[in-house]
Write a protein that binds this DNA or RNA. Structure first.
Length: 403
DNA sequence: TCTGGGGTCCTAGGACCC
DNA sequence: TCTGGGGTCCTAGGACCC
């Protein structure tokens, strides 16, 4: 791939979700893949399907290295971290950050951009400047600048590129004559609260260097878990929809157990292909209340299929089904079953069974054991035509060196 | 032919309580 | 004719993020 332009596709190879710098001008973020064929051919662009097992593993390696440099940190996303720089580095944060970059590059081969500032919002802007201008050698420390110099930098940032300002807020701001991050910083924060809610007020204060958005050092348990994927082809039969629904349910149930939680709310939804308005359209959802919190896959599949049955209508070409877990609670506070339908003993046995299945699938790979209703063919599976190897998590996909 | 997935937070409004 | 005040909890919808 060296020297070539690269794009990465969304699930189902549907849209472009990442582009290398040289091709950003010609291929837009989120553009449907099929619209880019000419550009791809003309510039010999390399195409990759999304490969989440690989990204998750590389992310974990980078985070582990950075934790050595900034023990108090928040894992903000798969490729971003907020860290508190230690006091002993305060003489020269930039030099310290350059060490971080070199270490990560040497051990993992990935290039970091580092922004330093007094608030999360300002560090995001510093990082944005590092990436956009390519002139700070990968590290920009805003705390070394005078206030007027920081203002000059903030003036280069369009207001919609500020963290927390999306399409709707930027419209409101522009209508009010606020175009840049610097102008937002100098805006009346009570005005911001009135028109952009408390979220907007916090951003204004953060831009002034007053921390309002706290660091979250421990990853909290998820409050909702969803699995919903577009099918590789359109589905009309209930049996196939059931297979997909059961598969997604097993997946969210496993995630639920991974974080040590139970659930008592489950929503199933289906819809047809919205890009074909000439065909009959249908979308619906069903929310099930589970009488007592559980993480037992067969039980969750039971509720999911019941919900699916209640919303399934014949005669439509289904494009997507999704399973959504809400009302998630920690395992420790298991609410006893008032009517005694599930004894403590049964509950314990079920937990053990799930633990065994999870362990086997962790050691021998996903789907080593699955439930029969999930199906074997899975003809509806998403497309991943350009998948690179899961080099770090699958023995049989490790690259071979040939002489 | 082909158009993604997985999250959080905030607010308003409704239902309820004393 | 005239009909209180002070709360909590839940949900849906809308905003945002990567």
């Amino acid at each position: 791939l060296h020297g070539r332009q690269i794009i990465v596709l969304s699930n189902n190879d549907g849209c472009v979700v990442a582009r290398s710098r040289g091709i950003k001008r010609l291929i837009k973020m989120g553009q449907p893949f099929f619209e880019c064929q000419d550009v791809i051919k003309q510039y010999n662009v390399a195409v990759c399907s999304s490969n989440y097992p690989l990204y998750a593993e590389m992310s974990a390696r980078v985070m582990a290295l950075l934790a050595e440099f900034a023990p108090t940190y928040e894992k903000y996303s798969i490729d971003e971290l907020f860290g508190v720089l230690p006091d002993y580095a305060c003489d020269d944060y930039t030099a310290y950050a350059k060490q971080m970059r070199e270490t990560v590059f040497r051990f993992v081969g990935l290039v970091l951009s580092v922004g330093i500032g007094p608030t999360k919002c300002l560090t995001k802007i510093a990082t944005e400047l590092v990436k956009k201008t390519q002139q700070y050698g990968g590290v920009l420390d805003l705390t070394t600048f005078s206030e007027s110099d920081v203002d000059a930098l903030l003036d280069q940032i369009a207001v919609e590129d500020v963290w927390g300002i999306g399409p709707h807020y930027s419209l409101i701001l522009r209508e009010h004559g606020i175009q840049t991050a610097c102008e937002l910083k100098n805006a009346d924060d009570r005005w911001a609260k009135k028109h952009l809610t408390i979220a907007g007020q916090r951003i204004v204060l953060e831009l002034r260097g007053i921390p309002c958005i706290p660091l979250v050092p421990r990853t909290p348990a998820k409050k909702s878990i969803v699995s919903a994927k577009t099918f590789g082809k359109e589905i009309t039969e209930l049996a196939e929809l059931q297979g997909a629904t059961a598969t997604y349910t097993a997946k969210v149930a496993q995630k639920l157990r991974e974080q040590g939680s139970l659930v008592s709310g489950l929503t199933v939804f289906v819809h047809t292909n919205r890009f074909r308005p000439q065909e009959p359209q249908y979308a619906n959802s069903a929310t099930m209340r589970i009488p007592y919190p559980t993480s037992y896959t067969p039980e969750l599949i039971h509720y999911a299929l019941e919900g699916l049955k209640s919303i399934y209508r014949e005669g439509f070409k289904y494009r997507k089904v999704g399973v959504y877990l809400s009302k998630i609670s920690p395992e420790g506070v298991l609410q006893p079953d008032l009517f005694g339908e599930v004894s403590t003993e049964v509950h314990y046995k079920r937990a053990q069974l799930m633990a065994v299945i999870d362990t086997i699938n962790r050691i021998y790979g996903p789907d080593t054991i699955s439930f029969a209703i999930e199906g074997i063919d899975r003809t509806w599976k998403m497309r991943q035509a350009f998948l690179s190897g899961r080099f770090t998590t699958q023995w049989n996909e490790i690259p071979l060196v040939t002489m």
